[in-house]
């Protein structure tokens, strides 16, 4: 029983990072139609920025904010410089993002080598309740994620900007006729998603050491969760992220750690096959004009 609770808790903190990626993916893919597999590399860059900042004596809290800003700026530049030219052809965007994976990974390796990188834990307290060890850093990650995702949710579903955004997904032309700057909203969503990836990277390196290759597996999980939850569906992404995180945590705890990455791939293939709109319903990408 203790093992079970322990693994569920560990799974929840991993699930938080996955959810942050998945929320970014579900927004970007679901609302703008850009298939950015380099999203995991955005996360990795976020981790690297946090690592660089913390190793240079910046406090962890400032470092994750820095990571968000750097990755958001990078997202802005890449959306304006590359992805905007692929909006009409999502598959080309996908291939561009695969090229981007290679470029970003190896630029990081070029400057900061391929070795594992870690930072000292920002919080060291470990609570022990009934034989279950609760590391406060994990709780911190869970809370930050919950807060950020809740804010994103409110912004998308309740604010007038969120409404304008959803309108432009529903019907680009009509939305544009209503005076909504659709192009600018696409960039905005991409930048928001990138910032979330930056935050996810900062939180990830607080939990585990990372390498320049960490992004590759994380992004597949993010996509799996986004597709399972239904594209553009934030609630679906959160639920699916929790399920995947807990399943992975449990299977690692019971001796199947080699297979943890396989669940997301397998699930994603199955969902695409049988429920292309996800388990909880969503767009299958925006309708192209």
């Amino acid at each position: 029983m203790d093992v079970l609770l322990q693994q569920i808790l560990n799974g929840l903190s991993i699930a938080s990072v996955i959810t942050l990626i998945a929320v970014g993916v579900t927004l970007i893919f679901g609302l703008t139609g850009i298939i950015n597999f380099a999203h995991g590399e955005f996360l990795m860059v976020g981790s690297i920025v946090t690592w660089l900042a913390v190793s240079n004596g910046v406090s962890f809290w400032l470092a994750i904010i820095l990571a968000m800003i750097v990755v958001a700026v990078m997202g802005f530049a890449l959306e304006r410089g590359l992805f905007r030219f692929t909006l009409e052809r999502p598959t080309n965007g996908f291939i561009v993002s695969l090229g981007l994976i290679i470029v970003l990974q190896h630029i990081v390796i070029l400057f900061w080598n391929a070795n594992q990188k870690s930072i000292p834990r920002p919080l060291n307290t470990v609570w022990e309740i009934g034989g279950v060890r609760i590391a406060s850093v994990r709780v911190m990650v869970i809370f930050i994620t919950a807060a950020v995702v809740a804010m994103t949710f409110v912004a998308i579903t309740r604010s007038r900007y969120g409404r304008a955004l959803r309108a432009s997904v529903e019907d680009r032309d009509t939305a544009a006729l209503m005076g909504i700057p659709v192009r600018r909203y696409i960039t905005g969503v991409f930048v928001l998603g990138s910032a979330l990836a930056g935050l996810g990277g900062g939180l990830l390196i607080a939990l585990f050491p990372i390498t320049p290759f960490t992004g590759g597996t994380m992004v597949m999980k993010g996509f799996a969760v986004a597709l399972i939850g239904g594209l553009g569906n934030l609630t679906g992404a959160v639920v699916a992220g929790l399920i995947l995180g807990i399943v992975e945590g449990l299977s690692a705890g019971y001796g199947f750690s080699g297979w943890t990455d396989a669940y997301s791939f397998g699930l994603m293939i199955l969902v695409l096959l049988f429920r292309p709109n996800g388990l909880f319903g969503g767009t299958s990408g925006p309708k192209m004009a």
């Binding site: 692929t86 080309n92 561009v96 695969l98 090229g99 994976i101 470029v103 190896h106």
Partner: peptide, 13 residues
């Protein structure tokens, strides 16, 4: 590898 990635992006676009 960086060159490959850049080539891929350039060719596609």
């Amino acid at each position: 590898r960086i060159l490959y990635g850049v080539c891929l992006i350039a060719v596609i676009l």
